[in-house]
Amino acid sequence: MPGTRHAPHLFLDRRSAGLELAEALVPHAAERPLVLALPRGGVPVAFEVARTLRTELDILLVRRIGAPGYTGLGLGAVIDGADPQFVVNEEVMRQVRPPDGWFETEMQRQLLELEQARRLYCSERPASVGGRCVILVDDGIDTGASVRAALKGLAKAAPERLILAVPVAPREIVADLQPLVDELVCLAMPEPFGSVGRHYADFADTTDQEVADLLMEARGTT
């Protein structure tokens, strides 16, 4: 797989991982891609990608919709954007059969929460992805549930090209997500995987303020 290293790798922190990831994505710089980060941990990584590629950075917010009475089941997700998208797990919907109107009401509630979260991080309207090369960036992947929902939502918004780029992820999850994108760049797929944080020397939580500061800085340099 192009852009992939198979040997275990330890990243110093998210910013340094972003610099390494950016090197693998430099061939896309001429396309002026839209770099979308999954907050909060994906933002420092995506910041370095967008800065290296000299292109636009935005966040992509995803809110999971849990099944009523079944906290471990996900009925779907709401994906932020200029044209917000909804992803539905039809199999779980058939199993749970929520009351009429419940899912629609919950979607609207989660959409309001997305809008509140975006105001917390930045005052900018979400960037439009239609017809653009879009690079979705996170600091790593564990189960892939949020990334999978994000990719499905982005695909519905009709980007010209959709790329997933992460520093580290389990090999089986990478294979599972591959069909959802035009290109997948993963720098390391260590075995055994453990967790994303295990592969960073510094994996301290990214704060809301750090996210807001990085987004503001990125807007000032593009």
Results as ranks from 00 to 15, higher is better:
129 V>D: 03
88 V>R: 14
74 G>Y: 11
80 D>M: 11
109 R>Q: 09
92 V>T: 13
72 G>F: 10
79 I>P: 02
57 L>T: 12
108 Q>H: 12
76 G>D: 04
83 D>M: 11
80 D>V: 10
113 E>T: 08
93 M>N: 01
132 R>Y: 10
112 L>Q: 14
90 E>R: 15
73 L>I: 10
93 M>F: 09
83 D>T: 14
113 E>N: 07
59 I>K: 01
78 V>W: 08
109 R>D: 05
79 I>A: 07
78 V>N: 04
97 R>N: 12
108 Q>K: 13
103 F>P: 00
126 P>K: 13
72 G>D: 15
69 G>L: 10
95 Q>V: 05
136 L>S: 09
104 E>D: 06
129 V>Y: 03
119 R>G: 05
63 R>K: 15
136 L>Y: 07
96 V>S: 09
81 G>I: 01
66 G>N: 02
136 L>C: 08
136 L>W: 09
100 D>Q: 14
67 A>P: 01
102 W>E: 09
88 V>M: 05
57 L>Y: 12
121 Y>C: 08
49 V>I: 03
64 R>H: 10
63 R>P: 02
120 L>F: 06
72 G>E: 15
100 D>R: 14
94 R>E: 00
81 G>K: 00
132 R>G: 07
91 E>L: 11
131 G>S: 10
103 F>A: 07
115 E>S: 09
101 G>C: 07
62 V>W: 05
118 R>G: 09
86 F>N: 00
91 E>K: 09
83 D>W: 09
115 E>H: 11
53 L>R: 06
102 W>T: 10
54 R>K: 14
88 V>E: 10
79 I>Y: 06
56 E>G: 02
81 G>F: 04
74 G>Q: 11
105 T>D: 14
122 C>Y: 08
45 V>W: 02
71 T>Q: 09
97 R>T: 05
81 G>N: 03
135 I>G: 04
113 E>S: 12
85 Q>S: 15
90 E>A: 15
114 L>E: 02
131 G>Y: 09
134 V>C: 07
125 R>C: 07
101 G>L: 08
119 R>A: 15
79 I>L: 11
86 F>M: 01
46 A>L: 06
113 E>V: 09
